[in-house]
């Protein structure tokens, strides 16, 4: 599904990714762990086309298409979803209008008719239940005044609405209490199918108790320095990143 080949990327002239290689297939969950400043969030930003970052070399193929040539919205419509580490507050834009625009632009891209207002509201009700999202929140402006936990639930709600094939969860566990963590993780698990894949970026092992990865990669200083199965995350938790970074 996703092929990253020797990816280099920089921000403001500073190189952050220094040759990342990664293959993700349908049905897989990949965890990317690593110390602060290793480039974890840069990777998610580059994959989604954040204009702040510059790809200096390398290739990324998504379902056989050259991802790096696509603008951010096309990547999204092709099925890449990012659960933001810091979801953005957009005062004055209601969740309902935002999601209706998102769902219908994706449908148009797929050659489908837009959902009517009634169909859309019904669809939204179904998806809200996946992350136990309060009705009040969807009537408010996007993320405005949401608590940390509500923002992350809202990300997973949007994921449910848009049904991506590849979801990237960037530090989704940061700032979550244990109940929200469980709800968010269960939401992600409910959305998992043999046709979808996930990249879970996290600093801690905690989230991986709930979202169990098939592969764990350690990203350090802009490169993947070690890959293992879920037991690697437990080892890292015990011994810290020094054990791999120093090798």
């Amino acid at each position: 599904m996703l092929e990253i080949k020797n990816l280099h990327a920089s921000i403001n002239g500073k190189e952050i990714l220094k040759g990342v290689n990664l293959s993700v297939h349908a049905g897989e969950v990949h965890a990317i762990m690593g110390p602060n400043g290793a480039g974890k969030s840069t990777l998610s930003a580059v994959l989604t086309g954040n204009p702040a970052y510059e790809v200096t070399s390398g290739e990324v193929w998504f379902k056989g298409k050259n991802l790096l040539e696509m603008p951010p919205e096309q990547r999204a419509r092709e099925g890449i979803f990012l659960s933001f580490q810091y979801p953005v507050e957009i005062p004055g834009v209601s969740m309902v209008n935002f999601m209706r625009a998102a769902v219908n632009e994706k449908r148009a891209y797929e050659g489908k008719e837009p959902l009517s207002a009634t169909e859309f509201l019904k669809y939204m009700r179904e998806k809200k239940s996946i992350v136990e999202l309060d009705n009040k929140l969807t009537n408010r402006s996007v993320n405005e005044g949401f608590s940390g936990g509500e923002k992350k639930r809202n990300e997973i709600f949007q994921m449910a609405m848009l049904q991506p094939s590849l979801s990237i969860l960037d530090e989704t566990d940061s700032g979550l209490d244990i109940d929200s963590l469980r709800i968010v993780a269960e939401g992600v698990n409910k959305l998992k199918t043999p046709q979808t894949a996930s990249i879970v970026i996290t600093h801690y092992q905690r989230l991986l108790d709930y979202i169990v990865p098939d592969f764990v990669h350690v990203l350090a200083d802009g490169q993947i320095v070690k890959t293992g199965d879920k037991t690697l995350a437990l080892e890292l938790e015990k011994h810290g990143y020094e054990m791999v970074v120093k090798q």
Partner: peptide, 8 residues
């Protein structure tokens, strides 16, 4: 960017 990431 957030909105574009949702496909707008």
């Amino acid at each position: 960017f957030y909105m574009q990431q949702r496909g707008l």
